[in-house]
Design a protein around this nucleic acid. Structure first.
Length: 382
DNA sequence: CCAATTTGACCACC
DNA sequence: GGTGGTCAAATTGG
């Protein structure tokens, strides 16, 4: 059925692209280093980050263009469903290459819609909790996946028919850790009601948070504005103090901070977004840009690794000072490494390897939270 | 009665 | 042919 025509801008790539990418990447790296040198709080640090993000966007755009041109040339091949492989901290060229392939694959992979994954952790593995990102999903299928102990659930936006919202997600419980769910999102939400509803819903429930999405919708570009966080920085923080990360993200987002950001049962969430070739390009703050939930974590520059970009989200309760900071961080590291596995990122959490694809367009709807929480559709399965 | 979930079948891709 | 993703009829729940 509906097949995604990768198509895309042609002839964009060209020969100089790799070089351009290298240059941009260097610039970004330099900006990052600069930012690190500076003290937190220093105005220049913010500037450095912005610069880093800007360069990162440039890299993303360049990659997207190149990937698009590559796909039009007809590249592609086998792909491994999950986890993008190869491309381990190699040269930028190599990275780009892998990226390219990944992007093309993604494009060919049905719909050609942007796709990314998130990891949700529930507090109790025994509970039949399902990652609830606060959005309305309707389950339309479930299937046993080869090699997976648990079936994968298929969901699509409740407003798919009503508003033609193309968003879908796949939820699968991790084999290794029953508390962890791998959620793969595909397509941005273009439905509006959802947001309203969601905003209201969240406010009504335990965790109240403002709905930051609107602005994105109205001003696609605006989103990129506050994506001023260097991902490395973010990761660093995240891996260190979950609490700090949360607060930081929160504030960085310009929320009326206060009581927002409270994810009851979710210690952390990790994001690994696959970088759609043209997707990253075409959806800068896309139409349906929306942070599915008030979640703050989106205020940073996502990273795409070998085709998937990672974000680490932390949902430690806003108050308690990250009880198990160390614990959490190790978990994060684990998750992150898994997600970045392709890059061969071991325990070391190699930034260099992460630094492969970096796009500042934020996720449309970073899935956040309420687990097993409210929400019209949450299949009991799992 | 309507909406959501379940589940087997179908289809596309590798 | 195997596997993953989606469809749609049947079923269940509010």
């Amino acid at each position: 059925m509906q097949d995604g025509g990768a198509g895309g801008a042609e002839g964009g790539g060209g020969n100089g692209m790799p070089l351009l990418l290298t240059i941009l990447a260097d610039g970004e790296e330099q900006a990052r280093q600069l930012g690190e040198q500076l003290v937190p709080g220093d105005d220049y640090r913010g500037a450095a980050r912005r610069l880093q993000c800007t360069l990162g966007r440039a890299v993303a755009v360049a990659r997207a263009v190149e990937a698009a041109s590559a796909s039009s040339r007809g590249t592609d091949r086998s792909d491994s469903p999950r986890s993008a492989d190869e491309s381990s901290g190699g040269t930028t060229a190599a990275v780009v290459d892998a990226q390219e392939r990944q992007a093309v694959l993604l494009c060919k992979r049905r719909k050609g819609l942007p796709r990314w994954t998130a990891k949700f952790r529930v507090p109790d593995a025994n509970l039949e909790a399902t990652p609830d990102d606060g959005l309305s999903w309707r389950k339309y299928g479930q299937k046993d996946i080869l090699g997976a102990k648990f079936p994968r659930g298929y969901y699509r936006c409740t407003y798919r028919n009503a508003q033609g919202c193309p968003a879908t997600k796949q939820v699968q419980r991790s084999d290794a850790d029953l508390c962890v769910f791998d959620v793969t999102y595909q397509g941005d939400h273009t439905c509006h009601q959802k947001q309203q509803r969601h905003a209201a819903g969240t406010a009504a429930s335990t965790h109240s948070q403002p709905a930051p999405q609107q602005q994105e919708q109205d001003h696609p570009g605006a989103g990129m504005q506050h994506v001023v966080m260097g991902f490395k920085d973010v990761l660093k923080v995240e891996t260190t103090t979950t609490e700090a990360a949360a607060a930081r993200a929160l504030h960085g987002h310009g929320h009326d901070g206060a009581s927002s950001f409270c994810f009851p049962s979710v210690p952390f969430v990790h994001h690994a977004r696959e970088a759609p070739a043209a997707a990253a390009f075409s959806r800068p703050g896309g139409p349906g840009y929306d942070f599915s939930s008030p979640a703050p974590p989106h205020c940073h520059c996502p990273v795409v690794v070998g085709g998937s970009y990672d974000d680490v989200y932390d949902y430690e309760r806003r108050q308690a000072p990250a009880p198990g900071a160390a614990e959490s961080s190790s978990e994060l590291a684990e998750v992150v490494s898994r997600a970045t596995a392709p890059a061969g990122a071991g325990a070391g959490f190699d930034y260099a390897s992460l630094y492969q694809y970096h796009h500042s367009e934020l996720d449309p709807h970073l899935p956040f939270p309420p687990f097993g929480g409210a929400g019209p559709s949450h299949g009991p399965y799992q």
